[in-house]
């Protein structure tokens, strides 16, 4: 799905009136004050975050409104290349191809800003005695391919030492549908690019995963860190050294939690140029304390202090 955002500048609009389909075109001028609208296209994981930033920006500068199109991370690079938007929030870094396309069009690379941290969390019911899994166990539970080096698949709760007594029966698995980025990310990072089992319930949203896991003691699922709630328990994962790392703010901030990642904002900024004031205000908001507080309020993890400072020195 792509953006329908109307580009600033000369724009021709097609007006289809009713079923007669009368075609009228007209040109309309542009507005370039300190206020104005700020367009952004990109990740739907970050939708809540970007919209909250927009709300905060609007409270501070009532003339600026943010229009955000949540079409998924994949919709961001084309919009950036096309010039539909200068701001593209993405929940993954740009691929080499996407970067190259931008470079071909503009002759300079897009400015990459890391705006927050996020993680994927393996969750179980809040009363489940299980606390920790190794990467191999995660793979053995969720995949058929065992690409991460597990010996045999784990299907039942009694195959895990912590849950030998309770809960009983098969592990009921919950996850996201094929089209979502979370599905793809879990596949590549937790399953070592292996194949998912077929009997995973594929929910059309992350909060549905949390709801499902929170209701049944023998369920296990994965979801974004921002969806964690007291209904479920986020499991600790073993890192390479064999330490159990809980999905806590500090562990995700320091990149110790194995399934953590950055959230990005890509900006179309020619070298040596300055951004228009509205965009400028938006970006300073993101790296301000208030902006990072919003990151936390939206359920994500704020950037580590040192990192924030380093990025703030950009032009």
């Amino acid at each position: 799905m792509k953006s329908y955002c109307i580009r600033r500048g000369n724009k021709y609009r097609l007006l289809l009136t009713g079923w007669l389909m009368l075609v009228t075109t007209m040109a309309s001028g542009q507005t370039a004050t300190v206020g104005g609208t700020l367009g952004a296209v990109g990740s739907d994981t970050m939708a809540g975050l970007v919209l909250r930033w927009g709300e905060a920006l609007n409270t501070r500068y009532p003339d600026i409104t943010l229009q955000f199109q949540a079409g998924g991370s994949a919709s961001a690079p084309p919009a950036l290349v096309a010039g539909t938007t200068r701001l593209a929030p993405m929940s993954r870094p740009m691929t080499q191809d996407e970067r190259q396309q931008f470079l071909d069009r503009y002759g300079y690379p897009p400015l990459e800003l890391r705006v927050a941290r996020d993680a994927l969390v393996v969750v179980v019911h809040r009363h489940n005695p299980l606390n920790t899994l190794t990467r191999q166990q995660v793979d053995a539970i969720f995949s058929t391919s065992l690409a991460c080096g597990a010996q045999q698949p784990i299907r039942r709760w009694d195959a895990l030492p912590a849950t030998a007594e309770w809960p009983f029966g098969q592990i009921a698995l919950h996850g996201r549908n094929l089209a979502s980025g979370t599905h793809g990310l879990f596949q590549s990072s937790a399953l070592c690019n292996g194949q998912f089992r077929r009997d995973i319930s594929e929910h059309p949203g992350s909060s549905a995963v949390i709801a499902a896991v929170g209701e049944s003691p023998n369920a296990m699922g994965y979801a974004g860190y921002n969806h964690l709630s007291p209904m479920v328990k986020g499991l600790s994962l073993m890192d390479a050294q064999g330490n159990a790392i809980a999905p806590s703010v500090s562990a995700i901030q320091r990149d110790e939690y194995p399934l953590s990642r950055y959230l990005y904002l890509y900006v179309n900024l020619p070298p040596g140029d300055v951004l228009p004031p509205a965009e400028q205000a938006f970006i300073s908001l993101i790296f301000s304390d208030k902006g990072q507080q919003i990151v936390q309020a939206a359920g994500f993890v704020p950037l580590p202090e040192h990192h924030r400072g380093a990025q703030q020195q950009w032009p």
Binding site: P204, G205, S207, A208, H227, S229
Partner: peptide, 14 residues
């Protein structure tokens, strides 16, 4: 309705 129930941030609150 569908979106709030399945895509929201906090399903309990939704």
């Amino acid at each position: 309705l569908f979106d709030t129930a399945f895509h929201g941030e906090d399903v309990q609150a939704a």
